[in-house]
C-alpha cells in the first residue's frame, strides 16, 4: 500500500488535534506517514502520539532553519519526500499556514491541489475530496487529475480515531536555505491558549455580536460558553468595535465553525456571518428584534434581551449539569 504523507502541526512538543484528524483520514487512502518539521528533538516528543493515531512511519526533518524560516522548510521536506516515496496523497491541515505550504508543494511537484476539503475518500484509483463552499451553500466533489493529490483538510471536519501502530523513524535532510528567496522569523509572540476549547474544534460555540454592547459585557457570553464547556465567538461588528479579539471572529472573513450547537447572542445574522456558522448542527438565537435574519436559520429563537435571557440560561445549564 502506498504511503500518505501527513504534515504534523505541533506546538511545544504537543501534536495538534487537526493532525490526528489527518492521520485518521490518511488511513482510508493508504499508510499514514507523518512528517515532522521542527527543532532538533521534536520528533522524539511527538512520535508516540502519532503512532497512537496510526502513523506507521515518522519522517524527521529537524534543524534550526526549520524553525527560523517561514513555510519553505515544510515545503522542502514534503517535496523531497513526495519525490522519494511517490505517495498516494499529501494531506495538510487547512490552517492559514497549511494552505500556503500545500500550494507551494503542489506547484513544486507539478500536482493539483484540493483546497479545504471536509471529507476525503478513495474511489477506484482516485482520491476524491468533498468541499463545502460559499459558507456551506454548495457541496462539491472533486479530484486531482494531474500528479499526486495535495489536499488541505478543514480542521474539525474529519473525526480523529485512535488506531495503535508501530512507527519507524527516518531522517530527511533539508536543503540549505537560500536567504534571497526565504523569509526569516525574527521573533514570536505565541498566542496564549486559554482554558476554553479551540473555536474550530469546539462542539459548542457561543457567539456575541454588536448587541452585546461592550467588551465588559462579553462576560455574559463567556459565562454561558463556560457553563456549556464551549468556545466563544464574535461577529465582525463585535470585533471591529473592540469588544472581542479578532481571532474569535466567525464568518466569511473569520473562522468557519460546524459545532453541534451554535448560540448567537445579539447577532443580526448577516450573510457573511452565516457563511461561517450555518453548517452548525443546531442553531439557537437570542435577539430583541423579531425581524433579525438570524431567526430565518435558527432552530430555536428567543425574541428578547440577551442580558435577561443568557444569564438565565447559564443558570439553568449550571443547575442541570450540577
Amino acid at each position: 500500500m502506498s504511503e500518505v504523507l501527513v504534515l504534523v502541526e505541533h506546538v511545544d512538543g504537543e501534536v495538534k488535534k487537526a493532525t490526528f484528524e489527518l492521520l485518521s483520514a490518511a488511513r482510508r487512502l493508504g499508510e499514514p506517514a507523518a512528517v515532522v518539521v521542527g527543532a532538533v528533538g521534536t520528533a522524539s516528543k511527538v512520535k508516540d502520539a502519532l503512532a497512537r493515531y496510526g502513523a506507521t512511519k515518522v519522517y524527521v526533518a529537524e534543524s534550526d532553519d526549520a524553525v527560523n524560516y517561514l513555510v519553505t522548510p515544510k515545503v522542502d521536506a514534503l517535496a523531497t519526500l513526495a519525490g522519494r516515496v511517490s505517495p498516494a496523497a499529501v494531506l495538510i491541515s487547512a490552517s492559514l499556514e497549511g494552505k500556503e505550504v500545500a500550494g507551494r508543494v503542489a506547484v513544486r511537484i507539478d500536482s493539483g491541489l484540493l483546497v479545504d476539503v471536509v471529507d476525503v475518500e478513495r474511489s477506484g484509483d482516485d482520491v476524491v475530496g468533498t468541499q463545502s463552499i460559499f459558507g456551506g451553500g454548495f457541496v462539491v466533489k472533486s479530484k486531482v487529475s494531474t500528479g499526486t493529490p495535495v489536499i488541505t483538510v478543514r480542521p474539525g471536519a474529519v473525526e480523529a480515531e485512535a488506531a495503535e501502530a508501530v512507527a519507524t523513524e527516518e531522517t530527511v535532510e533539508l536543503p540549505a536555505v537560500d536567504p534571497a528567496r526565504a523569509t526569516r522569523i525574527t521573533s514570536r509572540e505565541p498566542a496564549v491558549a486559554g482554558d476554553r476549547p479551540e473555536l474550530t474544534e469546539a462542539s459548542v460555540v457561543v457567539s456575541g455580536g454588536r448587541g452585546v454592547g461592550s467588551a465588559e459585557n462579553f462576560a455574559v457570553v463567556e459565562r454561558l460558553a463556560d457553563a456549556l464547556g464551549g468556545a466563544v465567538g464574535a461577529s465582525r461588528a463585535a470585533v471591529d468595535s473592540g469588544y472581542y479579539p479578532h481571532q474569535f471572529q466567525v464568518g466569511q472573513t473569520g473562522k468557519t465553525v460546524s459545532p453541534q450547537l451554535y448560540i448567537a447572542l445579539g447577532i443580526s445574522g448577516a450573510i457573511q456571518h452565516r457563511a461561517g456558522m450555518q453548517t452548525a448542527k443546531t442553531i439557537v438565537a437570542v435577539n430583541k428584534d423579531a425581524e433579525a435574519p438570524i431567526f430565518e436559520i435558527a432552530d430555536f429563537g428567543v425574541v428578547g434581551d440577551l442580558f435577561q435571557v443568557a444569564p438565565q440560561l447559564t443558570e439553568e445549564v449550571t443547575k442541570r449539569r450540577g
Partner: peptide, 27 residues
C-alpha cells in the same frame, strides 16, 4: 489539474421555533 466531479446546492436551512421572552426565555 483538478476536476469537479459533482456539485449540488445544499437545501437552505429553515426557521424553527421562535418564542417571545416573557421572563422565561433562558429556561
Amino acid at each position: 489539474w483538478t476536476a469537479v466531479l459533482e456539485a449540488a446546492p445544499k437545501p437552505p436551512r429553515t426557521a424553527g421555533e421562535r418564542v417571545e421572552d416573557n421572563g422565561d426565555g433562558g429556561t
